[in-house]
């Protein structure tokens, strides 16, 4: 387990997370994240063999809502901070499928 964790492929993570990292930053980030992972890995020593994961401090069931339309169309307000709008569409550089 320790083996695979010695290597952290920062560029792969950056690709998944869609952030751009230049070479200088890559080294620093890699060493930061390595030390963070090392700190985190200390918890591995805890025996959790008979413990269930706790997903939320609220140990209760999900609350649902009735099937009602409660929102009125309000496109102009919702799009007021949009970087690029054309005829009510959000637009981005063309994607080739």
């Amino acid at each position: 387990m320790t083996d695979k964790k010695n290597h952290i492929d920062i560029l792969h993570l950056a690709n998944l997370a869609k952030v751009e990292i230049d070479e200088a930053a890559e080294l620093k980030l890699e060493s930061d994240i390595k030390s963070i992972i090392k700190m985190i890995s200390k918890m591995m020593e805890v025996d959790t063999s008979d413990t269930l994961p706790l997903k939320s401090p609220l140990d209760s069931a999900q609350r649902l809502r009735p099937d009602q339309v409660s929102e009125k169309p309000n496109r102009d307000l919702l799009q007021r901070g949009a970087p690029e709008i054309k005829d009510g569409f959000f637009t981005v550089p063309r994607v080739i499928e």
Binding site: R65, Q68, V69, S70, E71, P73, N74, R75, L78, G88
Partner: peptide, 26 residues
């Protein structure tokens, strides 16, 4: 359904672009 799965915006088909949305859908 009448409204969306996680928001109270209308689930109707065929409105103007981005009309049937709210902050949750966006």
């Amino acid at each position: 359904t009448t409204s969306k799965i996680f928001s109270g915006a209308s689930n109707e088909y065929g409105s103007l672009a981005n009309e049937n949305t709210c902050e949750i859908d966006l």
